[in-house]
Design a protein around this nucleic acid. Structure first.
Lengths: 226, 226
DNA sequence: CCGATTTTTTAGCTTTGTCTAATTTGAAAT
DNA sequence: ATTTCAAATTAGACAAAGCTAAAAAATCGG
């Protein structure tokens, strides 16, 4: 009888790196610098962790070439993203959290909840497919809806759009959108995209008009409405 | 303008020690050995941590004399206990967890949830005063209901009792009680307390009779019913 | 193609929290 | 008053994760 091998969970640091690489890398690989900036650690720490993540089989890493997720790494990232988005949904819909506080709390919780907890929370929430920011929630099996939304900053005057999601990292922006009910699911019409300063002028379903500066327009993602 | 001092939260290890000392120590102090046994670490690690906890102002410690909580330590312990019991309540009442799985999950979550989360969860649950095991939930201010319950093993034949709580550490026992609906709030009558083997025979509200061996009788706490 | 700049890595150190092995202390029993 | 034994402490090591400073590699502009 060999020892029962208890699958030791990854530390929250490891999880943070994997998620950052997933976020940045997409298909390709993430650079030391970008990961360092995202996690607010020194580049040296990132190099150090890249080596260890490779030993764990979570990334493929070559000196000076950045790191890209292996299949196992990708699954781990999606597991965390799934937890994160389910937790955010719970905090917003059931605990009455403000948009701005949700991300931070979920960021800590996602590292300690079990798969069992995640499964039950998913059920409690009624198997949502998107979180309140509009981001798709990966399935337990690690599949993720394809997403052909684009930032509002790339829209063209005259287009009719559906808000698909809003970036969830800047609290002030989330607040701005939330206060004006510019949330996923709402429809917009593009009145003007001003090349000179990047301001996008849109009209909502109640004929309310908003002029969104470039930073805001980059934070809102939209789909073409038929 | 001095740096804004961000109150750094205690690590989960520190929290575990403080809670263990609270659990064991009661009023007095907890020994190195007992804390080591409870946390499944070596006695050397405990000595080491006792010194550090003292430097943090959480315990009073003297060589060979064990550690006792300071006022700050006691508050920290109660903060964790409050979180733990609220989380257990949520897991059982809303996520459909089994009695046996609840403790472990809460043990991990209690270290990462914020005060904000705790406040909102308390509200979501309707400000419960006891968790589903019957243990009182400390207030946000750190006050804890006095408790004059005693283990069923100390009952006397003929007494009419109210189940007050059941120890939440042994999953099999929790299961046994749960399956038979021997849960906090139910009433029992003591038919017999057998000195020879410590078996306690009780009858419940439906006239169902149970013979509980000493280990079970020590795990169930009761109050005298008027 | 070459120097300047940016990015990455290396080297070495720090803190937390753990361990084992060896030693010391306190307490209990003769 | 010793002896003995359990409990506690010390000493020294290790892994995880971070840091700074210095060196090396890659990239970019002319």
């Amino acid at each position: 009888m060999t020892d029962p091998i208890v699958e030791k969970p990854y530390s929250s640091s490891v999880g943070d790196y994997v998620k950052a690489i997933w976020d940045l890398g997409g298909v390709g690989s993430a650079s030391t610098k970008d990961v360092a900036a995202k996690l607010l650690v020194s580049p040296a720490s990132v190099t150090n962790m890249f080596v260890r993540l490779q030993e764990m089989g979570l990334v493929k890493y070559e000196r000076y070439q950045g790191a890209s997720l292996t299949e196992r790494g990708r699954m781990e990232a999606l597991r965390l993203v799934r937890r994160h988005r389910l937790i955010e949904t719970f905090l917003l819909e059931h605990l009455g959290y403000d948009w701005q506080d949700v991300h931070q709390e979920a960021e800590r919780l996602e590292h300690v909840v079990s798969d069992e907890f995640t499964r039950r929370l998913d059920e409690f929430l009624g198997h949502p497919e998107h979180d309140p920011h509009g981001d798709p929630i990966p399935s337990a099996e690690g599949t993720l809806e394809v997403d052909d939304s684009f930032p509002l900053s790339q829209a063209v005057a005259g287009q009719r759009l559906l808000i698909s999601k809003v970036r969830d990292e800047d609290a002030a922006m989330l607040d701005y959108f939330g206060d004006r009910n510019l949330v996923p699911g709402r429809r917009l019409t593009v009145k003007e995209v001003r090349a000179i300063d990047g301001v996008v002028i849109v009209e909502d379903e109640e004929a309310e008009v908003y002029a969104l500066g470039d930073p805001l327009a980059r934070s809102m993602f939209v789909l073409l409405a038929s």
